[in-house]
Structure formats: C-alpha cells, structure tokens
C-alpha cells in the first residue's frame, strides 16, 4: 500500500475549507497551517489567469526531510506516510530547510501558551494542545489517526469541490491511480526527484 492524494486543480475553488478543516481536526496552534490553498496569477488585464493550488506535505517517497533528519525523528511508514516523532526532534530544522515545498513548520517557544484568543486556551484548545511540543518541527500527517481508522484525511472529507482524492497509489484500480493515468497527474517539483505522493491534475 502506498497512500497518496490527487489534487484536482480544475475542481479547486480556493475556498480554504481544507485549511480550516485541518485546523479543526488537528487543533494546530496559531500560525501553524498544515495545508492551505495558494493562489497564482499570471497575465495582464484583461487576459488574466488565476489558479488555486492546495498544498500540504507531499509525503515524498524519497523524502529529503527523512534523509536530512539527524535524529531519526522523521520517518516514513510502510504505507508511505511521513511522520515526525516530536519526542525525538531536536529542532535543528534541517528538514524544514530541505523540504522543497516549505511544508514544515517550526513551533516556536510560547506558541502553546495563549491560543487563538490571546488570553487563555479555549476548551477545544485545551483538548488539542497537549499533543504538541514547542521547539520541534511539525507537519501534515495525512490525518494519520483518521487514516488508520479507514477514514479520509479531514481536508479530503470536507472539500466541497471534491478536489482532493485520497487512496492507494500502488493499486492500479484505485481512484487516485486512475485519475493520475487518465488525466495526466504530475508531481510538484518532480525534477527534484523527491517522488511526492501528492499528484496534481489539471
């Protein structure tokens, strides 16, 4: 099994439902966004093109972050999910710099203190924050707890446009594999040979 995601750029409407669903699922502290939708504009009025590009950890098969991690905190599971063991991370940020997609986040000191409303943690934040540690690097986990229960990641579940599809890349009959074949899926920065498990289709 090789878990991966296909992002349909034709469907995505840049609504950021994924961005917020990720916040709700993971309870990440302020300024920590495991996924978000970028916009890219080209051209000159009136011939203008605007594209919405959801980004998240690509769970690369040949992940530079796994390679450069000196402690073994970042590892790749058998099913391809790349995870950071916060207890092992020393916060050297080699992975942060090595990630071509800039999809890693360093949790600064004090990040877990005040929560979003600035004074004290909300009951929701009190439930969610204990799993985080300051001074280490975090990133998207493909919602590993959900995936292990057979559910889709939260961003996939909510996406109103069904622009995110999750599945087994090693199964040629899976929806993700078929989409990649039929609609010419491509990997972000494929020239860097990191073999992302996230594909885009247009």
């Amino acid at each position: 099994m090789h878990l991966g995601m296909v992002i349909d750029l034709k469907r995505c409407v840049g609504c950021q439902a994924c961005t917020i669903a990720c916040k709700a699922e993971n309870g990440t502290p302020p300024e920590v966004l495991f996924t978000k939708v970028l916009e890219q504009v080209a051209g000159e009025y009136p011939i203008v093109k605007k594209k919405f590009i959801p980004i998240l950890c690509n769970h690369c098969d040949d992940a530079p972050c796994v390679r450069v991690c000196p402690t073994g905190a970042t590892t790749k599971r058998e099913d391809g999910i790349v995870l950071v063991d916060h207890k092992k991370c020393i916060g050297c940020r080699a992975c942060y710099v090595a990630c071509p997609y800039k999809n890693r986040i360093f949790l600064k000191r004090g990040s877990l203190k005040n929560g979003y409303f600035g004074k004290e943690l909300t009951p929701f934040e009190k439930v969610k924050y204990p799993k985080w540690q300051e001074g280490v690097v975090l990133k998207c986990t493909f919602c590993v707890e959900r995936v292990d229960q057979g559910l889709d990641p939260s961003c996939v579940q909510t996406c109103p446009a069904d622009a995110r599809i999750f599945g087994d890349l090693s199964n040629p009959e899976s929806k993700v594999s078929r989409l990649i074949r039929q609609r010419g899926g491509f990997q972000p920065l494929s020239e860097d040979n990191t073999e992302p498990s996230v594909y885009y289709i247009e």
Binding site: C15, A17, T19, I20, A21, K23, T158, P160
Partner: peptide
C-alpha cells in the same frame, strides 16, 4: 458531507 471553511470554523 461537505462543509465550507466557515462551517468548519464553528468551534471557534
């Protein structure tokens, strides 16, 4: 099953 970003943010 779909929900927009605002709906997702109701917790806050």
């Amino acid at each position: 099953g779909k929900l927009c970003p605002k709906g997702q943010a109701g917790i806050m």
